[in-house]
Amino acid sequence: MQLDLTSGARRARISITPLIDVVFILLLFFMLSSSFMQWRQLDLPMPTAGSASDAPVVRIRLLNNAGAIEIGESRSRMGDTQWLKERVLDSSDAVFAVDVAEGVQMQAMIHLVDALKSAGATRVSLVGVLQ
Rank of each mutant, 00 (worst) to 15 (best):
A68W: 02
I71V: 13
R75M: 10
A101L: 01
A9E: 08
A12H: 02
V57R: 13
L27Q: 06
R13K: 10
S33E: 13
D21Q: 05
F36Q: 15
V104W: 01
I14N: 00
I110V: 10
Q82I: 14
L27D: 08
W39P: 08
Q38D: 14
S91Y: 07
S74W: 05
F96W: 09
D80H: 09
H111L: 10
D93E: 13
L89C: 08
L44Q: 10
S74N: 07
V58W: 01
G72W: 06
Q107F: 04
E102W: 01
E102I: 10
T17H: 05
Q105P: 00
Q38I: 15
K85E: 13
W83T: 02
Q41R: 14
I25D: 10
Q41W: 14
S34T: 15
D43Q: 14
G67V: 03
T6C: 03
I71N: 02
P47R: 13
D21S: 06
L19N: 00
A49N: 07
V88D: 02
N65A: 10
L27Y: 06
H111Q: 09
A68N: 11
L27A: 15
R40V: 15
V98G: 03
W83H: 05
W83G: 04
T17D: 09
A101K: 05
V57P: 03
S92F: 10
I69N: 01
F96A: 03
L32P: 01
V23S: 06
M31L: 15
P47W: 12
S7F: 04
E70A: 09
S35A: 15
K85N: 09
R40A: 15
K85C: 09
D93H: 11
L62C: 00
F30W: 12
R61Y: 07
W39M: 15
N65R: 04
M78R: 09
Q107A: 12
N64I: 04
